[in-house]
Amino acid sequence: MPRVDAIDHPQPRPGGDPAPPSPDDRPDGVLAATGPARRIERGSIWCGVAFTALFAVGFAIAGFIPPPAPTTPAQELARDVAAHADRMRAGVQVSWAAGVLFLPWIAVVSQVLRRIEGPGSIMARVQLGAGIGSTMLFVIPMLQLQAALLRPERSPEVTQAMQDLVWMPFVGSWAVPAAQCVAIAVAVLADPRPVPLLPRWVAYFNAWVALAYVPAIAMPFFHEGPLSWRGLLPWWLGAIAFFAWIVVMSAVLLRAPAARPATVAPAGRAS
């Protein structure tokens, strides 16, 4: 195994940029060690957990776990809306408004990626942009759902069409949250430190979550079965992957070591 030994003691690659030497032997961390910054960061992480909890509670109240099947006849859909309109409205109000709690969580992840990447920090910006996009793709269909629930007495076909306009983007916009996960994975794998700021398995976990969202690509072709919008892959796997992602990422961030005081600059960038 001579080759393996050689790899275990890497030498600078000719023409490659060697990683900058660490100014301190202590491993660096990602979160603020003390003060208001620490409280804000930890509070923001808990906001993400609160978001998923309220999202689930609201959907449970509304009876949208899982959402109505694409095969539901218009008459039946309209009858359900008429029978449970207020319960559905209340649940959706809880869920959509909770979506704003996702924003502080995204901001902390972006901050952590910036510390990992240093100046430039492209992936931190991609994560932030995709995160805001995900939030909008959550909030806007939910408000459209309120519009669909507003007039239970209207023609059933109209209610059905409006619900199509809700569930198709809500479950089907897989590429935006996937981009968020890919950005995290790339930043973590590209961490130049000898001991990475976030453990490298976090990158592989994010890659898995991104892949778990991909089957929704087939959703427009199916009214029933495992690829429909309430099917095994787009709905159940997507939901499980999303919730697991929030919980795992939050736990990783809450347990991550604090940054060395010197690096907790106002800009928050590791030098």
Binding site: D8, G16, D191, P194, V195, P199, W201, Y204, F205, W208
Partner: peptide, 24 residues
């Protein structure tokens, strides 16, 4: 360019192929 930071525990007898994260 990212390659220098493999985690030091993943070498020797008890190590897994790739790195532990691969298996996640």
């Amino acid at each position: 360019a990212t390659a220098t930071r493999r985690d030091p525990e993943a070498r020797g007898a008890g190590r897994v192929p790739g790195e532990p994260g691969t298996w996640v």
